[in-house]
């Protein structure tokens, strides 16, 4: 499994016009529902919100990584949105969010390869030049290329 299998082209929203955390979550869930990654949007969203309630997934540097492991998910998936408006996410560093990576994981997941991919992504997010590339990407292809690098 590779990153681009998780982050399908349709899952990339380069200029999402959302005004709240919830709205951005709904948009990202919708694109993953369209590709069949998310089966039951309501069930999955509940898992994501529960995770947020445990502690914000706004990791700082303008990035949030909402995620949920849920029966509402049929296959592992990843979606990305770059926001036109800054959104408050109660981030660790207090700064608003401009990039959102959303992670969907099925409840029953025997293999763990996708988890390794996500852990690598998480590591990359800690690097400033990587975050800059996310900001600068002008197409979903460019974004995917940055991720694969």
């Amino acid at each position: 499994m590779e990153l681009k299998e998780l982050l399908k082209k349709e899952h990339v929203l380069l200029d999402l016009d959302a005004n709240s955390r919830d709205e951005s979550l709904d948009e990202l869930i919708k694109v993953m529902q369209n590709t069949g990654v998310v089966e039951d949007a309501a069930v999955y969203k509940e898992a994501v919100l529960n995770r947020e309630a445990e502690g914000s997934t706004g990791i700082g540097f303008g990035v949030a990584i909402p995620h949920g492991k849920s029966t509402g998910v049929s296959e592992p998936g990843l979606a990305f949105a770059r926001l036109t408006n800054e959104i408050d996410w109660q981030s660790l560093d207090g700064n608003p969010v401009t990039s959102v990576f959303m992670i969907a994981i099925p409840e029953e997941q025997a293999g763990n390869e996708h988890l390794q991919i996500l852990s690598q992504l998480s590591r990359k997010l800690m690097h400033e030049d990587f975050r800059q590339k996310l900001q600068d990407a002008s197409s979903s292809d460019e974004l995917l290329a940055a991720l694969e690098a």
């Binding site: 990791i59 995620h67 988890l115 852990s119 800690m126």
Partner: peptide, 17 residues
Amino acid sequence: CPTGIAHTYMAAEALDQ
């Protein structure tokens, strides 16, 4: 971290860096 999907690795990377 409880879910062990993201924060665990970000924290590790931050410390490494």
